[in-house]
Design a protein around this nucleic acid. Structure first.
Lengths: 349, 349
DNA sequence: TGATTCCATGGAACTGATTCCACGAGAGTA
DNA sequence: TACTCTCGTGGAATCAGTTCCATGGAATCA
């Protein structure tokens, strides 16, 4: 029967050299005669040799592995972008990623961290799917950790999050730049949650208005849920008011999508009659709307990359306070913003 | 400074027992006196002991690890559902998943397989993001492998795919059940590709029509691209024809979404004036449309689960031809299908 | 020529678990 | 009493690599 996988000993014997020499060849170390190297490589090739990672790990103590743990239930498409970004950076450094979806279960999460530590991970990335404060398993303190799209209660871990405020400001500035002064805003969650994802975007909106000398008007603000229904409902509601907005800033693309349907029902065309900016850059929605949606992109891939990079480069166990990084959310111009309609034909005073 | 992590030797010494006994406690083996067990556990607790997985792996040869490798570029939100399903099943069996996004690069893919094998994975899941034939790295033959949402050229690997034909049939049957006889169909890719994802759904459409005694009408068929634009364009096109369809079956939810905009432009209401069924069940789209979209769900989570299950239970290296499993695509009823409109008011002959 | 340095090499020790064998004590049996 | 069996236990061997030390020969230098 198929002899078991050859080990480094087998290679050494077959090539008539010592194990040390084989190891040197394997790791492309200097001080090996070219001739010897070639011979050993030939034998490895012939026997179909593959090093056993576990043995190397055990001896060197290096697992070349990071854990990637998700918070909460993650039905969002965001997770994958995050993983891709993290993984791309990890590959550059010859590391692998162990992904665990904790699926909102605390026990699973604790267990996952324990498993990862037993597997000797060199660091753990703990990722949330929207920007908020989290309680993380205590065992994370045993190993270098970066929080993504969230932050811990006492800021005791390094973290990387989107710059929600600046994103909100840029969205609003984009509308202001086209002359809009009555800009409706629908938040992506109830403000009482205190989630930066909700509060921050609104703050950016206010900042932009202030900078442009436009007074903030409470009547143009609605607290949404992030869902399409909510966007649909509040769009109708805002348009029903006296002196309705000429433009909208929605805290999520999904709400913007709902709003598109409201506009269609009222016979309003985007961007001729009404301008819209979303938030999140959910590709499949923003691109598929007609016209495609101008929106603010959450830097998921960049956050994933940054997280791995930080684990790779930051010294572990020093005393300085953990880094709290904020990444910009670039605006993605598509086709949903236009100039303020000139109240010309068939206008109701 | 913090002494290095305690090993099983340290525990043995501290507890005044042999390493064998500690190992027995660790693995909950019999033949350990209750008193001894308690003592050892106390010491482990006190020293914060964690077993080193690499050592166990090396000695036992069991890595408790599966590889999860994705094909192509995967910007789709499908990947995550797949991973979640696979991971849920893996957790039940106390295994972990190493996820690698090959991102469409052949070299990365080869490298990834090599890495996974070196890490001693007990099996590899190779997942595509839509149902088609794939060329996989040769090294996959060295280890148990399951293909997901794709199949290999010579059917040399076990695979699990969606039952596209049956899905197409059910979508069409749903529309037939509400009395529709003129049903437009837009495929989700060019048929010349031969992709089961495209060809299969159409086949199901034809089967359903045949079973209902409705002759297939070439004039109601369009080859789409899967994108929203394509759905928008073909919806207009089909509605412009003589004797236009009263219902549509789109090969993707995104095309259905595009079509919604076409309907809105023509003043048609779903489902009163026109009925629609999509395919994929892309949650964020199907739920967010107004009315929400009735569609056929791709069984991503189920495929992920099945794949791991197969790796767990199927014997490796026997001679029987590898299993080719086909999983049903359940219909998800939302609100986009209604009865055929009675050509009552304002009808043009 | 003799001393020093450098290069190529072999192989023992080590990493941290599991496994298996040996052994002593106590219980059960004839 | 002598023999067997079972239970609880200790510890050496083992897994497959890396690392480090020792060694011999060639090259360099004074």
């Amino acid at each position: 029967m198929a002899a078991r996988k050859p080990s480094i000993q087998d290679i050494a014997r077959a090539a008539g050299v010592g194990v040390g020499t084989v190891s040197r060849v394997l790791n492309e170390r200097p001080n090996v005669a070219e001739e010897t190297r070639a011979k050993v490589e030939r034998v490895m090739q012939r026997l179909g040799y593959r090093p056993t990672f576990a043995a190397r790990h055990m001896r060197t103590g290096r697992s070349q592995l990071f854990g990637f743990l998700t918070d909460q239930v993650t039905t969002t498409p965001f997770a994958h972008e995050l993983i891709k970004g993290a993984q791309a950076r990890a590959r550059q450094a010859d590391r692998m990623l162990m992904v665990i979806d904790a699926d909102g279960d605390d026990r699973v999460r604790e267990q996952a961290v324990a498993n990862l530590i037993e597997r000797g991970v060199e660091g753990i990335i703990y990722a949330a799917m929207f920007h908020h404060e989290v309680h993380v398993p205590a065992a994370l303190h045993e190993v270098p950790t970066v929080l993504v799209d969230c932050y811990a209660v006492g800021r005791t871990f390094a973290s990387v999050v989107p710059d929600e405020v600046r994103g909100g400001r840029e969205a609003t500035e984009r509308l202001l730049a086209d002359g809009h002064r009555r800009i409706g805003m629908v938040t992506n969650d109830v403000l009482a949650t205190g989630y930066p994802a909700a509060v921050g975007r609104l703050e950016g909106y206010k900042e932009a208005l202030a900078a442009a000398g436009v007074p903030f008007d409470e009547a143009l603000l609605r607290e949404g849920t992030g869902n399409a229904d909510s966007g649909y409902g509040w769009a109708h509601d805002l348009l029903d008011a006296d002196d309705p907005p000429t433009a909208f800033f929605f805290g999520t693309d999904r709400m913007a999508m709902g709003a598109y349907f409201a506009f269609a029902e009222r016979g309003l065309t985007v961007p001729d009659d009404v301008s819209v900016v979303g938030f999140d850059d959910q590709h499949y929605i923003a691109d598929a709307l007609r016209p495609a949606l101008t929106t603010i992109a959450l830097p998921h891939a960049a956050m994933g990359r940054w997280a791995v990079d930080h684990l790779l480069t930051a010294p572990w166990g020093d005393d300085r306070p953990p880094l709290q990084r904020r990444l910009p959310c670039p605006i993605v111009e598509r086709g949903s913003v236009g100039p303020v309609p000139t109240r010309a034909e068939g206008e109701e005073a």
